[in-house]
Amino acid sequence: MITAEQKPLDEIKNLLGNEEKVLVVGCGTCVTVCFAGGDREAQLLASSLRMTTKLDGHPMEVSDVTVQRQCEWEYLDEIEDEIMEADVVLSIACGIGVQAIAEHFPECWVVPGLNTTFLGLPTEQGIWEERCMACGNCVLGVTGGICPIARCSKSLLNGPCGGSEDGHCEIDADVPCAWQLIYDRLAGKDQLDLILEIDPPKDWSTAHDGGPRKIVREDLQLETEES
């Protein structure tokens, strides 16, 4: 899932400027699951903003609403009236949700309340870790299901580098060395052959390096009637 963290309150206040009517928009999907931008967080943030702006001497009128998915037009249509009434919309969805609001309601001014951090999973209660960088050309089949692009600090395809020690990466003792994990897993499965061959330079054109990406599925597209 997409994980995110709330921006510091001061930064959020700065983004809201001197507007009077603020609408906090939560999202019921990824950011709800990672406790960053769901209904509960939307209510809490709205309440914090009401309180702090009151203390600051220029109280804002802050309301909140949460949609099932901020990244789909049909859910956004449901809150069109609230959005149009607000001077500024504070989206606490991931960056996709913020952009969806800006794109769907060009007249509205929307600012982000979260920092979208990574694609990852909760490894234990309260801890999330990055697992995928959406490079568009999955290599997990040769690395034992452990991603060297996302989990090696240098995204090496022929790791590990000389900075691997006691199972952790040179950058931080709390960061596991992805290539130690890959090595251990392949050794355990008697599959080390998979990493003895040189992995050639990666085609990064399927990643962001090739420009903003787009998927077209003609089989799913609705046919448009010829005029």
Binding site: K154, L156, N158, C161, E170, I171, I198, P201, K202
Partner: peptide, 26 residues
């Protein structure tokens, strides 16, 4: 391969690692 930039004097830099040292040799 190169030391990670976090150790140096520009830790906020974007690194490259388009290829690794083995691919570079080739």
């Amino acid at each position: 391969t190169g030391d990670h930039q976090i150790f140096g004097n520009h830790p906020t830099a974007k690194h490259v690692f388009d290829i690794d040292s083995i691919q570079m040799v080739k």
